[in-house]
């Protein structure tokens, strides 16, 4: 069934909203009532229709608006897209993967026709119909990674594998939770995770790195990450922190439902075939508290999770100013009843 793409904004008047159907497919990340820190990797397999996992690269009703927002971010700050020179093969790998997965998952919107190295890519929602030579960058208007990630929801990083480590050597990052590609590009796995509290001491990154170094072709893996954002703003970059930071002080008991958003990242990791690099897809989903409480299970669970967060994480995720206000507001929807296992709505 064709997706009805919305016209909406992630800045200024913030007209972004989720339709009732989209709320039910939201990848709510908490499978229990208290917060647990874990590596939590699982195979990235297709899930049921009507969930965010119905295709391995998800496209939803916000696609067109998100791509428009990405173009605006890049106009202001082209450094949000960067690739070190040795990553060209991995760029083509990524272009292939995203075109193939989008075309396979949403054939009514995307078509890829391959004839040897001559490819034709049709992207109906954005009105694109391009023919190009795979492997020849002069036949595309942008570098291959920039070209395809201007047409795919989520942030994308490509990490190179060498010397028993992973190196963040290319990326398109415009919808990030407060980290800078321009600053972090070239760093290894431990370095770019440097500012994350608690997890280093718990050995989480050592285990995750060991796991990822042996990630196999054809067996992608995924994990969840989450934070909260005030207003449906995709671009919460450190570059623009001085612009969006004041939002955090704007939460009142009256506007929690509208302003406070749960921001979930479904991170999928893919071994790329020609380069042996790993593609790191960080797909961001936003849902405000008014929308969240329309699912009774989530309305009960989320304030319980927020109440059990360790202080280091409250600080790191930037929730300090509005966490309590949000818990208080949400508690009206928590009657104390037990919740069912798993993450999906009842």
């Amino acid at each position: 069934m064709a997706i009805a793409f919305k016209q909406e904004t992630f800045r200024d008047d913030f007209s972004y909203r989720n339709s009732p159907e989209n709320i039910r497919r939201f990848p709510f990340p908490f499978d229990r009532d208290e917060y647990m820190y874990a590596v939590n990797m699982e195979p990235h397999l297709k899930g049921q229709k009507g969930t965010a996992f119905e295709s391995l690269i998800d496209v939803d009703e916000h696609y067109v608006a998100e791509m428009h927002d990405r173009a605006l971010v890049l106009k202001e700050d082209p450094l949000r897209y960067q690739a070190l020179p040795h990553m060209m093969t991995a760029q083509w790998d990524t272009l292939e993967l995203l075109m193939e997965e989008q075309a396979a998952g949403f054939p009514e919107h995307f078509t890829l026709i391959r004839n040897g190295d001559q490819w034709r890519w049709i992207n109906r929602p954005l009105g694109i119909d391009d023919t190009f030579t795979f492997g020849d960058r002069s036949t595309l208007p942008y570098e291959p990674l920039e070209y395809i990630t201007r047409q795919a929801q989520g942030d994308f990083c490509i990490v190179d594998q060498r010397d028993g480590n992973l190196w963040m050597d290319a990326g398109m990052v415009t919808t990030q939770a407060d980290w800078s590609l321009d600053f972090d590009i070239g760093m290894n796995f431990m370095e770019w995770h440097g500012p994350v509290p608690l997890a280093h001491q718990m050995g989480v990154f050592d285990r995750a790195l060991k796991f990822l170094l042996n990630l196999q072709q054809g067996k992608p893996t995924r994990r969840f990450n989450w934070t909260m954002t005030i207003n449906p703003r995709l671009d919460t970059s450190p570059e623009n922190y001085h612009k969006w930071g004041p939002d955090r002080a704007s939460v009142t008991p009256e506007n929690v439902g509208e302003k406070v958003h749960l921001r979930v990242e479904v991170q999928s990791l893919w071994r790329l075939p020609r380069s042996n690099a790993i593609l790191f897809v960080i797909r961001c989903y936003l849902m405000n508290m008014n929308e969240l409480v329309t699912v009774p299970k989530w309305a009960r669970r989320f304030p319980r999770v927020l109440s059990t967060l360790p202080p280091e994480l409250i600080d790191y995720k930037g929730l300090t100013r509005y966490r309590q206000t949000t818990i208080d507001w949400l508690s009206r929807f928590d009657d104390g009843a037990p919740t069912s296992p798993g993450t999906f709505p009842d």
């Binding site: 070239g186 760093m187 002080a249």
Partner: peptide
Amino acid sequence: LPLLVRDHYSRRLGAFQGVNIDAEEP
């Protein structure tokens, strides 16, 4: 802008990261 010096270092830039310290409450 008044910047907090974060304990985060980029080898490629040869520099630490400075982030606006009073963004949330200028």
